[in-house]
Amino acid sequence: MATARFTITRTFAAPLARVWAAWTEPEQLAAWFGPKGSAGSMLAFDLRPGGEWRGRMEAPDGAEMFSKFVFQVVEPPTRLVWVHGFADAEGNRARAAFAPLFPLEMLTTVLFSEAEGGTRIDLSWEPIDATPEECASFAEMMASMTGGWSGSFDQLDALFAE
C-alpha cells in the first residue's frame, strides 16, 4: 500500500525574508500557527537540526492539545523539515486525541521560494513508519488537513497585512 502524501501550496504577498521570519521566529509563529479560532503558545523553540518546537493549543471549547516537532533540516531561507506529532504536556509523543488512528509522526517539508507578487510556500506531510490503518486514517483526513492549513495561512496573510 502506497503511503498517502498531503500537499498544500500558497503564495503570500510578502517578501521571502518576511515569510521566513514568520515561520522561524517564535513570537510570529504563535500569532498565526494553528486552526482559526484556536489560541496557542510556544513552550520551546530551538531552530536547528535536532532542536525541538513544542507548543500548546487551546481550541474554542477549551480543549488543550500539545505538539512536539523535531527539526531535521534548517536551510535559511528556503527549506524547513521537521518530524511532526502530538505530545502530552511534558513533551512526550502522544496520539492525537481527535483521531486515535492518525499517524504518530509525520515528516513535514516546507519549501519557500520567490514568486511573482511575494513568496510561495509548498508544504507536504508524509506519515512516518505508519501502519496501513494509520495511512488510511491519514488519507481520510486530507480535507480536514486542507481546511486546517488554509485557516492557518489565512491568519498568516492577516499578519502580513498588519
Rank of each mutant, 00 (worst) to 15 (best):
K68V: 15
V74H: 11
F86D: 06
M57L: 10
R56T: 00
A89G: 07
V74M: 09
N92G: 11
V70I: 11
V70L: 00
Q72K: 14
G55W: 01
A89R: 13
K68C: 14
V70F: 01
P60A: 03
F86I: 03
R93T: 12
G91C: 00
G62H: 11
E75N: 07
W82I: 01
V74S: 09
D61W: 10
D88W: 13
H84L: 00
R93L: 10
G85N: 02
F86R: 07
V81L: 00
M65T: 13
D61L: 09
V74T: 08
A97Y: 00
P77W: 07
A96L: 14
D61Y: 10
E90A: 10
R79M: 06
A63H: 13
P60M: 02
A87T: 03
F86C: 05
W82P: 02
A63S: 12
E64H: 14
R79C: 06
R56A: 08
D88V: 05
R95E: 10
A89H: 12
M57T: 09
L80G: 00
Q72E: 14
A97M: 06
R79V: 01
A94I: 10
A59E: 07
A89K: 15
E75M: 03
F71Q: 08
F66R: 13
R95A: 14
G55D: 01
A97Q: 05
G55R: 00
S67T: 13
S67H: 09
V74G: 08
P76H: 10
E64G: 03
A59N: 11
Q72T: 11
A59L: 14
F86M: 13
